[in-house]
Structures are given as C-alpha cells and as structure tokens.
Nucleic acid binder design. Structure first.
Lengths: 150, 150
DNA sequence: TCACCTAAGTTCAGTTTCTGGACGAACCAT
DNA sequence: ATGGTTCGTCCAGAAACTGAACTTAGGTGA
C-alpha cells in the first residue's frame, strides 16, 4: 500500500491519517491551535524545510482543515486559520498532548497547562460515551462493521 | 529540525509524535486495537514493506507501547500486544476515528461502529473536562506554560 | 535613488527513507 | 525430500526530505 491509497480505504483512521498522519502535519496543527497563522512563523518555530511547510499547508487547505485568508494587499499576504473542520481536530490534539503528558513529562511536570474557561480549572481531557456520559475504557468497547464498511 | 529531535522538545505533542506520529505507526496501532497481534497479520493487512513493519514494531516495543510476548517455542514465535501505556492511546485512536467518521464517511455512513458494553449503545467519543465533566470546545480553553516548560 | 528589509514562496542537488522482491532461519507436516 | 509457516534481513531503485540559494512584490530609511 502507498500513502495515496490510504484515503480510499473503508476505514476512518486511514482516511484521517491520509490527511493529518505525518509528523510535520501534526506539528503544524499543534502550532495552529496555539495561534500560529503565518508561513514564516510555522517555518521558524518548526525549523524544517520551507518546501515541506508549503506542501503541508497546501494539503491542509485543500482538505478544508485550514483556510488561506488574506490579511493585507500590496503585496497580498495570507494567513492560515483553522476552519470548523480543523477545530474539530481539537480532541485529537488534546488526546495526543495528554498521552505525552502522562508518559513523557519529566520530573517537573507538563510543559503546557490547559484551563477550561467554563469552570476555571486546569484540566485534562477525558473521553466519555456520547450516550451514557461515562468515561470509556478500551476494554469496554466492542467494534463491528458499520453501514459504510467495504 | 529532524525527526529524532522531536523527542527532546519541551512539548508533549512533539514527544508523542516522535513515537506514534507517522502514517504506518498509526495504522499499526489501529490494527493492534482491532486485535491484530502477529507480524504476518500486520504485514498482510497493511500491504507495506516488511522492513517498515519490523522497524515500527521495534520502535513501539522499545517505547513500551507494545510488548513482544512469546506464544510458542520451537521455533520461538512472538506476538505484539498493547501494554497499559499502549491502551492509553485509545482516546487518540478514537478521536481520529471520530474525525474521519464526521468528515470522510460516505453516504452509507461510518465503516465501523463502536458499542459501549457498559450501556449497550453505539457511541462516539466526547472529550470532557476532567474537573467539571462538561464537553470541551477548542475556544473554551486557555493554554499557558506549565512547570515542565523549557 | 539605492541599498536593504519582509513575507511567502520556488528550485535544485544531495541525503535519507521507503518500497518491492528475493532470500534466510528454524521448525512442522506429509 | 518437498513444501508450508512465521518472522525476519538484505538490497537496488524510487520517493521524500533537507539546506541553501533564488524569486516576487512591495516597504523603509538616508
């Protein structure tokens, strides 16, 4: 299998991974959620090849995860903003952050804290069931083919 | 920046992405959560180079995400099982699945359904606040440097 | 007016990584 | 003896990534 074929698999992970599943794309999304919007800022923060920044930003724009919005004319300059589809990735990003916090934080603790404005507390994300609202554990879930299976 | 440097960043996303953040590793984890345990099964299901399977499985074992457990002697054969650290990735995998279900499912619907045994319902994951238990939206969160910041 | 600066790319040679396919090791079944 | 299974390794060629220079379109200061 090749990368391009991932998008055609009857599997939501494969389809998502085809868009967001490489190292630099995930790092770009992290920065986007931290408020980074400009090409130069992504490039400087990540310190990777401009070619890759261009390519990844274009892919995310093509997929509707980011929108390219002009913020000045003469000369035209654009910034990259998360779309609603992009904002929907927040649980993915937070789940990854939380796993890193649990398993790779040093003695000092987590590099970043997240405060939930609604309640005012520092929090970590908890995955709950949409139906009974209880926290869900991997072993309590049964997976089976759905209507969109191949 | 190079891949190896990601693990040394004062950022939980970078550290996590250094381990799980490439296309094939995420696909291997998907299969692991679906019950796949053997080298041949991973290779056949993914249809990618055996070299990559070997390399990725070894990385995941080194990082304690999978454990290499012998299931027979003469000749010794191993299977790869999710460790508790690996099972902690379930929210990451489910968040990715859910994003794919929302934005890439065809007319037919989701390729896979997930039943929460505790309540018996098909569900999707909801990210909630560990403190007030309310669902969390990206715009309700304020991020700031934590004790482990660089 | 001229030199220099910024932002957002593009181009390209050289390096690293990935692929597909063959091969190897250690055993089992017939 | 021949073929099958499982889990790899090895290698040449293809694809992806890197770093550095270059481009475009305009702005700044002297």
């Amino acid at each position: 299998m090749k990368w391009e074929d991932l998008a055609d698999q009857p599997c939501s992970i494969a389809r998502s991974v085809a868009v967001i599943g490489d190292r630099w794309t995930l790092m770009i999304l992290r920065d986007a959620f931290l408020g980074v919007r400009r090409f130069e800022a992504f490039q400087t923060r990540l310190g990777i090849s401009r070619t890759i920044i261009t390519e990844r930003l274009n892919l995310l724009v093509d997929e509707g995860v980011l929108a390219k919005v002009p913020y000045q004319d003469r000369p035209v300059r654009h910034e990259y903003r998360l779309t609603p589809k992009g904002l929907d990735l927040y649980p993915v990003v937070m789940a990854i952050v939380h796993w890193g916090d649990r398993h790779y934080a040093g003695e000092a603790g987590a590099p970043l804290l997240h405060r939930h404005k609604a309640c005012g507390c520092d929090f970590h994300p908890v995955m709950t069931c949409s139906e009974c609202h209880a926290p869900v554990d991997a072993r309590e879930v049964e997976t089976r083919a759905g209507p969109g299976a191949g």
